[in-house]
């Protein structure tokens, strides 16, 4: 992991000469994708199916795009692990910052993560009635709200639907959830509300700030009996500082609380901004860490 230099960066903030030296060696937010994020010859490629989902129960009237990634190694006789990505359109894009399906092809092929079906979901939109009206953008409501509504949406609508076509695991240790920004806190909230269903969380530049009260998680984590959740947090020192809060501080509070409460967690603080650049660059490492228990067992 490339995090050492960034830690140094923070520690020597007052020492101009050392900072200069560090800056001369590394530009801020200079993360690049490694070979695990690039299509490799000889590695079998999974398939992606796209569709549109209309919720009539949990988020009534919302419409959203989804993509289902099925790895080439999938065998319908054996339950596959599951990973759900919020803002799925950006994760599934093979030309984007994350390229999650390429990473999954490569890691599954190398045996560094289990055979995992990826479910990529866009946030919902309530379409407008008339063409000159604004649709209701449901993203913040779905992702930032501290409740089990989004978890229910996954458990009662999405997983049963995907399960009609694929053999999915019901083991919570084989279900992971991932997101960026508000999608990051959303992923944490799903596991926090339903650890019997999801126990692996990957949060990139997670919005553990007061958008809709999410800044309370560090306090809750410290005073709640530990839940069996494994969590990887990625954050950048040049992330947002706005009316909702300060993202680098909020993620440090999360990491400190997870540490205090004895969670199985990994925290990587880079020097990126509010983007998927750093998170995308370390997505292979993040997934290896998140899934290592399932790989060792298999």
């Amino acid at each position: 992991m490339n995090s050492n230099r960034h830690t140094i960066h923070v520690a020597i903030l007052g020492l101009a000469m050392l900072t200069l030296k560090a800056n001369s060696a590394y530009a801020i937010d200079d993360y690049t994708l490694g070979p695990d994020s690039i299509v490799q010859e000889g590695v079998p490629q999974g398939t992606v199916t796209q569709g549109q989902w209309t919720s009539e129960k949990i988020f009534p009237g919302t419409v959203r795009d989804y993509w289902i990634y099925v790895p080439a190694q999938y065998n319908a006789d054996k339950p596959a692990c599951v990973m759900v990505f919020q803002d799925g359109g950006s994760y599934v894009n093979p030309e984007g910052q994350q390229r999650a399906t390429v990473v999954m092809d490569n890691l599954i092929h190398k045996g560094e993560m289990p055979v995992t079906i990826g479910i990529f979901l866009s946030p919902g939109v309530v379409p407008a009635t008339e063409p000159d009206q604004k649709p209701r953008n449901n993203r913040s409501f779905e992702y930032d709200t501290l409740s089990d509504q989004y978890a229910k949406f996954l458990l009662e609508e999405i997983l049963p639907f995907v399960g009609e076509s694929y053999n999915l695991t019901e083991d919570p240790d084989e279900r992971a959830i991932c997101g960026i920004s508000s999608g990051g806190i959303c992923s944490w909230t799903v596991a926090w509300e339903h650890p019997e269903a999801f126990r692996k969380v990957l949060s990139q530049i997670g919005s553990f700030t007061n958008i809709r009260g999410g800044h309370v998680y560090p306090a809750l984590i410290r005073k709640t009996e530990r839940k069996p959740i494994r969590v990887f947090l990625q954050e950048g020192s040049n992330d947002l500082d706005n009316l909702h809060g300060n993202w680098p501080l909020a993620n440090q509070q999360m990491a400190a609380a997870l540490n205090f409460a004895g969670y199985d967690y990994e925290f990587v603080m880079g020097d990126g901004a509010h983007s998927g650049k750093h998170g995308g660059a370390i997505l292979p490492e993040s997934l290896r860490w998140l899934w290592k228990d399932r790989v060792e067992e298999k």
Binding site: V48, D87, N93, P94
Partner: peptide, 16 residues
């Protein structure tokens, strides 16, 4: 069915 080498247009920005 979109294969990984195909074109997927990501319409959603993760930015707030």
């Amino acid at each position: 069915v979109v294969f990984l080498c195909g074109i997927i247009v990501a319409k959603v920005s993760p930015l707030p």
